[in-house]
Design a protein around this nucleic acid. Structure first.
Lengths: 151, 151
DNA sequence: AGCAGGTGCATTTTATACACTAAATGCCGC
DNA sequence: GCGGCATTTAGTGTATAAAATGCACCTGCT
């Protein structure tokens, strides 16, 4: 059940930390680009609003995980995803994949057989989101202890 | 209720897209650093597991939004956050802030008054997560239409 | 009275467990 | 070379549990 502790070679860790520190500057740059809006409080609230809106697709269980899975593991079939995302119910996976498809993050590709197989694949938009997510995954993997309390 | 459409100057947009494209390469770099694990299927499943684990703190409603809010808007008090995150109930905000504090993403700073005020502030860890999140916010803001269906 | 920072609790929304389906394929004996 | 049975694939249906919401309420301060 428990995963063995993360072991990353010193050189890999260095590369990951280098990548993260570069993102750090990019993040700062993006934040600075927002600062033109910082003149009064209304603009801050507008920015937060826009961010909440941008994240609305991610702020439910499994959406981020599905994206990360397809980004890490490449195209996968329904039951493969279910096995990778241990613990997800087929009901929930089905629902979440549908909303990912509806929101243009994932394509549902039917490969005509026989046997007919259905492959889930990131769209360009989804792959971009996965890419932008990956430094955060790397950082959390390196620096997060385990999660406390109810989430 | 509805936010006015996003208006970003051409130069700001260019800077944001530049930043995103740099992250894109960093993301690729991080992904390549994972590829040492790609030898067999077990390792892919191990990676996905680790990513799911890393995201577990974010895969509930409002956690990401709280982080993004504190990152964008800086230190804020309880009722200020509630106003910024329109729609969150005080019950939920209270619970989520508690788990963010427990997980070392946010500090609860009591400023002794009178009047006593409580300020929520990103920890180093939380600020880093916010930074790494910000390119994704920027990308989603630029490229996402609005969200379809139940989330 | 009014604000600040929350709790308590009933209701609604989301996610889970788990049984089940339908079409296709594989293998076994005969 | 065919019937029967199990298995795989991609999901649905439905009851229950967990998470989020609405709204009333509380204490301490001015």
């Amino acid at each position: 059940m428990a995963r063995p502790p993360l072991r990353i070679s010193a050189s890999d860790q260095k590369r990951i930390e280098q990548a993260i520190s570069e993102v750090e500057e990019n993040g700062g740059m993006i934040r600075r680009s927002f600062e033109s809006y910082y003149d009064d409080d209304f603009d801050v609230s507008w920015e937060v609003d826009a961010a909440v809106d941008a994240f609305s697709i991610f702020s439910s269980k499994w959406t981020i995980e599905i994206l990360a899975t397809l980004y890490i593991a490449g195209d996968r079939r329904f039951n493969e995803m279910r096995a990778l995302l241990r613990g997800i119910s087929s009901r929930t996976l089905s629902d979440k994949l549908t909303t990912c498809v509806q929101n243009g993050l994932v394509d549902r590709v039917v490969e005509d057989g026989p046997p007919i197989r259905v492959i889930y694949r990131l769209t360009g938009h989804g792959r971009e989101a996965g890419r932008l997510l990956s430094p955060l995954v790397a950082y959390m993997k390196l620096h997060q202890g385990h999660v406390v309390g109810p989430k």
